[in-house]
Design a protein around this nucleic acid. Structure first.
Lengths: 207, 207
DNA sequence: GCACTATCTTAGCGTTGTTCAAATAAGAAA
DNA sequence: TTTCTTATTTGAACAACGCTAAGATAGTGC
């Protein structure tokens, strides 16, 4: 074998198989969908035996956790872009919601993996909830800058949660066939998303 | 075999195996969770061979569809109760939402099957969206009785969808560990649900 | 009685997640 | 270098899964 197949210098056998597996999984997810994402298929895609992943992930679910983590980071990029757009604070709240749902709409299989992981552990992804740079905090901040009262701790928390709920719900429902005529009538999916989110108080007027 | 094992008169071998399978699936769902719901396990629970279900459902997914249908009907019962409660129309909208989320919270595995079926087909369950007695229409009606303008077709539709999104999102997130201190501070899950839904315009003030 | 059809079983295929002993490669110690 | 040790990967195997096909069985209609 030597270095024949892989010109780059690689420590150990493969180098960083862990990362290679996560990337293979993401590739498969886009190509074949969430249903085709088996551990064996990922190993196959990475060019390795079915048992190899078990030295880097104790479980299939642990591999999926890594994929989900990757997903949340990608989503955070979309979030940053939406936050930095030149819009008034109240509008910014809604644009954040639109960015969230649009991400889910563009990467439905990835989004599914992301949320299934959270649900299985009854746990909002750490990256989302605890971290200082988490998307959750990002929403909270934008809410405050949009005029929400930071002193009303509980109310602010409830408002932030309401944002997540509406965004997640819409993310999972926006692809339903029944909504297509309405989308067409409104002139596209984005208009549809804004229309729905306008009925969520926090999105509409910043608490 | 004769009638020895089954005193009731049964046409054909089993009688109504189809129904028995759906019931066995629901039983398994409550006992073992959604993850343990394999076709073979359902057949085992119903006391038949692994191949028997294929004479009543072409697929595993078709069995799950039947389970989901059962679920939507159960949910509709909870909906009716909430609608008939003696509350003012605006409050009634929120109580509908609370009933929805509480159902999902009490039957998480069933709810998961219900929504996975919808998502796989990119299709709101027919029972929910098309039927005259559908839960979707029920929300719509309550919205109108709460003061929403039935002439504003598009707005009404968007408001109804916003209800579903918030309710579904909350249904999938209410079990997250991170919310437990907040629930405790508010004095229970119902208060938490009402608190979150209060930030959704439609739930808060009927459009 | 007979044929016919719906129902159910038994056996089997290919695939999956997972485990385990053996093989292999890399780094450290001699 | 050689040897020892540890990390990584393979190959074979197991149980369970969804699903199919061929045959057995039980009801229905003639």
């Amino acid at each position: 074998m030597r270095e024949s197949e892989t010109p780059e210098s690689r420590p150990y056998h493969h180098g960083d198989l862990r990362r290679a597996l996560v990337e293979a999984a993401c590739r498969l997810l886009e190509k074949e969908g969430a249903q085709a994402l088996s551990l064996r298929a990922v190993a196959r895609e990475a060019g390795v035996s079915p048992a190899a992943p078990y030295h880097h992930f104790k479980d299939k679910s642990e591999l999926l956790d890594a994929v989900a983590h990757e997903g949340w980071e990608k989503l955070d990029l979309a979030f940053q872009a939406a936050r930095d757009a030149q819009t008034s604070p109240p509008d910014r709240v809604r644009e954040l919601g639109v960015a969230y749902v649009r991400f889910a709409s563009q990467h439905p299989d990835l989004y599914r993996v992301m949320y299934d992981c959270s649900r299985d552990k009854a746990d909002m992804p750490a990256h989302v909830h605890e971290n200082e740079e988490s998307a959750y905090r990002r929403v909270r901040e934008v809410l405050i800058s949009a005029g929400a009262d930071p002193a009303g701790e509980v109310g602010l928390e409830l408002a932030t949660i309401a944002c997540w709920c509406a965004a997640h719900g819409l993310a999972e429902m926006t692809s339903f066939k029944q909504f297509e005529p309405l989308k067409a009538a409104l002139g596209g999916e984005d208009a549809f998303l804004r229309g729905v989110l306008a009925h969520v108080g926090v999105f509409a007027k910043g608490l």
